[in-house]
């Protein structure tokens, strides 16, 4: 599991001096403000080119671009008129423009120039069409995935924190627990799919336990290390304040280990995504992973990309949620370390 997501949150930093507000915008600022509008115009122009691939005519993609064009024009005019809008919008403008340009480039190399082979690389029109046509199915699958993932994650995270505290706090649990952790932990949860399918009565339970296992390992590891590395002087101070064991564990050790616990939770969340998709593909006959495998079997790549788009939003949404939780719980770290 990668740890890259942990130190860098999803904060977009504005490129160069885009955010510096001035009374009358300079040429650079105007260009930044106009970037989304220009990019959308380019994408629309590409869309107007004659198509080299024969697919069903879709009006959704051009319609979407036209709406974007209108919105970006309004945004441009507002920015020229009002400095606060410019300050607010300027950091986002280059990213938005790049995203629309990317859509246009995709359109160009698929439909317009036919550089990419069909059916593996459909154009944006087909994917968007699929997103809209199958939204009910996709929403149902997202719901199933969310249920499986959240139950598995909650169980794994709770067990992980519980085991981690025991192993980190008590020498006896460390002696017996560490070897188990070191041997069982590194096994990819996905390798245990056959075992899980055999052991548990329903696919939902086996999927949940696989995800829980995948989450449990990093959370246990990082919790144990966080608890074991709590500054001794915090515990000493608490003892001289009259603290008993319960206070030492719950009010000193666990809060002090929270930064480490959150690293474990982030790693566990990443592992849970992977395990979710595998579990849904091979055992559980529902959810986004199942939809992906099913669409692929029918060589319906429009659906494949549609479900990947949903996954992107689904997973990054959950990550963002965990970041928000971290920001709340570890608010005291603000100013101490850079996130």
């Amino acid at each position: 599991m990668s740890m890259e997501g942990i130190s860098t949150s999803f904060v977009m930093s504005p490129p160069a001096k885009a955010a510096a507000p001035r009374r009358s915008p300079g040429p650079r600022a105007i260009l930044t403000a106009a970037a989304p509008f220009i990019a959308t115009s380019v994408a629309l122009a590409v869309d107007r080119l004659p198509s080299h691939q024969t697919t069903l005519p879709s009006h959704l993609y051009p319609l979407l671009l036209e709406i974007t064009l209108g919105l970006s024009l309004i945004a441009l005019l507002l920015q020229l008129a009002l400095a606060p809008v410019r300050t607010w919008f300027a950091p986002k403008a280059p990213l938005l423009a790049a995203f629309v340009l990317l859509l246009g480039f995709w359109d160009l190399i698929t439909l317009k120039l036919a550089l990419m082979p069909l059916p593996y690389f459909p154009g944006p029109d087909l994917v968007i069409q699929n997103l809209v046509d199958n939204w009910r199915m996709l929403a149902t699958c997202t719901g199933y995935s969310l249920l499986l993932l959240s139950v598995g994650f909650m169980v794994g995270a709770s067990l992980g924190v519980f085991c981690g505290v025991l192993i980190g706090w008590s020498i006896r649990f460390r002696y017996w627990g560490m070897p188990v952790l070191k041997v069982l932990g590194p096994i990819p949860a996905t390798a245990l799919v056959p075992l899980a399918l055999m052991l548990f009565p329903t696919a939902f339970i086996s999927g949940t336990s696989l995800i829980a296992l995948a989450v449990w390992f990093p959370v246990t590891m990082l919790t144990a290390s966080g608890i074991a590395n709590v500054r001794v002087s915090y515990l000493d101070v608490a003892r001289t304040l009259g603290a008993g064991r319960v206070f030492l564990i719950f009010r000193v050790a666990i809060p002090a280990a929270m930064p480490s616990i959150f690293i474990g939770l982030f790693m566990g969340l990443g592992a849970s995504f992977l395990t979710l998709i595998v579990a849904e593909t091979v055992g559980v006959r529902s959810g986004l992973g199942w939809y992906l495998a099913w669409a692929q079997q029918w060589a319906d790549y429009g659906k494949v990309y549609a479900v990947i788009v949903i996954m992107a939003f689904f997973f990054s949404g959950l990550m963002t949620l965990l970041f928000k939780l971290r920001d709340r719980v570890l608010v005291w770290q603000k100013g101490v370390i850079k996130w």
Partner: peptide, 10 residues
């Protein structure tokens, strides 16, 4: 102590 050892999370 010399280091105040305040609980940083409180």
């Amino acid at each position: 102590f010399q280091d105040p050892n305040l609980f940083p999370w409180l």
